[in-house]
Design a protein around this nucleic acid. Structure first.
Length: 423
RNA sequence: GGAGAGGUGGCUGAGUGGCUGAAGGCAACGGUUUGCUAAACCGUCGUACUGGGUAAACCGGUACCGGGGGUUCAAAUCCCCCCCUCUCCGCCA
């Protein structure tokens, strides 16, 4: 959520930021509504002040056995007026709230305008492998090696699901263990949150109300849904709380499956494990003071890069243009893995700084040690990493002429084998 | 799922329909005392919105005692609905 005070004091700045991400919002209408609201507040509160003042006289008058009927009649009229104004004020406040909840975050300084096409590669690791044989795609490889059962996955879950079998399950699990071990070593706190969340969690994260259709909703009444990423859970860890300055920054990570409807996003080119309704991810999350968040963002990016580099996978790091960042995020870097069969780089990690956008939505604040003042925290998140996107990259990048796959060295302690062979 | 109890400020814990933004305690902050620490004593100590003020300090107003309605001139206090927590019973990995 954006600060309405900022919109009020510098609407041009906000318009410029929103324009960079291709969002046109009628801020003038918002400000007009806000002005109306404030006028109502002034009138309403003046009446309330008078009412409170007069109302206090009643017990004294009664004590002196004086007549209060006239005064009470007058106060009754005021109470009716207040009730009317309260309703009007409430309606305007609701209108403003809805508007603000629908506005995306402002891009951070240095985030360029435009969509995907304006993303900039800022770093490349390794190089595209070349093969002295005809390389296979990961669907063929995973099927032949018995890592993934696509058909039976669909039999169980329907289109968009797959099943990890035997060495496939162990490889996926080895990746998770590798990441978890690294995060623990870096001093991050391990969390296993609920996978079922309440509506409020989605609001704080920035998914709701705009993207309600993207999640799996469980119940008719209420609104429980399956988390689309652990970020949605972790950002709610301290919702409505006031943290102490000395407890910041907080560095967390979690493992959860991620459940997404991905409605209408199927593409033939993405068959296999590139896009599914359920995938595994280890997620890093941070709470920081505003002055520290950029530094923590760097740290998260470096951590994510280090994990991929540890696997020796060829990737590129991109700084996203404003329009390609998700709504809640001020700045995002993506790690994109090379998938030879697609001749394309596909995201396996997205590391973002939401600044105070989510904190405002969820009222997550901290108290300064010296001044005792309360401020919004900054929240950050980054995949570390999406394992289900890594497995295809591993089998494709490290395939050999005989259809076997070399296991990256870093995974061997967790996986227990050097090579995955056809049987 | 059944029965009961309860949700009050950073925490703990009082609370009579009006004089309660809310006693007391703890923590925190400022100060006095002190060789240092501790202790003691004095003072300060909520948030949001809003008006004024230099976008600071500060001053005024309104609202907030789980959430939402209602009764009343007036609600933390009475009534209704919802949510959550705890205890006991049942069920269960």
């Amino acid at each position: 959520m954006l600060d309405i005070n900022l919109i009020r004091s510098d609407p041009e700045l906000v318009k410029e930021g929103l324009a960079r991400r291709g969002c046109q919002a009628d801020l003038d209408a918002l400000l007009e509504t806000d002005a109306k609201r404030r006028a109502l507040v002034v009138e309403n509160e003046a009446i309330k002040a008078e009412r409170n003042r007069l109302s206090k006289q009643i017990p004294e008058l009664k004590k002196r056995k004086e007549d209060t009927a006239d005064l009470m009649a007058r106060l009754k009229d005021m109470a009716d007026r207040v009730k009317l104004l309260d309703e009007q004020q409430g309606a305007l406040e609701e209108q403003i709230r809805k508007f603000l909840l629908a506005l995306p975050n402002l891009p951070a300084d240095g985030v360029v305008a435009g969509g995907k096409e304006a993303n900039r590669v800022v770093k490349t690791f390794g190089e595209k492998p070349s093969y002295p044989f005809e390389p296979q795609n990961h669907v063929e490889l995973c099927t032949q090696l018995g890592l993934i059962d696509y058909e039976r996955g669909v039999k169980m879950g329907g289109n968009g699901y797959w099943l990890y079998t035997d060495l496939g399950a162990r490889l996926e699990w080895a990746l998770l263990n590798y990441f978890i071990t690294e995060h623990i070593r870096d001093g991050y706190t391990f969390m296993l949150p609920p996978h079922v969340l309440t509506y409020e969690c989605g609001v704080t994260a920035g998914q709701f109300p705009k993207f309600e259709e993207d999640v799996y909703r469980l119940s008719e009444e209420g609104f429980h849904f399956l988390l689309p990423t652990a970020e949605t859970a972790l950002v709610n860890l301290h919702r409505g709380e006031i943290l102490e300055e000395e407890d910041l920054p907080k560095r967390l990570f979690a493992y959860t499956p991620c459940y997404r409807r991905e409605a209408g996003s199927y593409r033939a080119s993405e068959r296999g494990m590139v896009r599914g309704h359920q995938f595994n991810k280890v997620e890093m999350f941070g709470y920081a003071r505003p002055e520290d968040s950029a530094k923590l963002h760097e740290e998260l990016i470096e951590k994510a890069c280090r994990l991929v580099e540890g696997l020796n996978l060829h990737y590129q790091l991109s700084k996203l243009a404003a329009g390609d960042c998700s709504d809640s995020m001020a700045t995002t870097f993506d790690i994109e893995l090379w998938l030879p069969s697609m001749n394309e780089y596909k995201e396996c990690s997205s590391v973002s700084n939401a600044m105070d956008y989510q904190a405002r939505r969820g009222n997550i604040r901290f108290r300064r040690k010296d001044s005792r003042k309360i401020e919004f925290v900054h929240t950050l998140n980054g995949s570390g990493l999406a394992t289900s996107r890594l497995l295809p990259a591993i089998v494709e990048q490290f395939q050999r002429g005989d259809g076997s796959v070399t296991v990256p060295e870093a995974l061997r302690p967790f996986f227990g084998m050097d090579v995955i062979r056809r049987r």
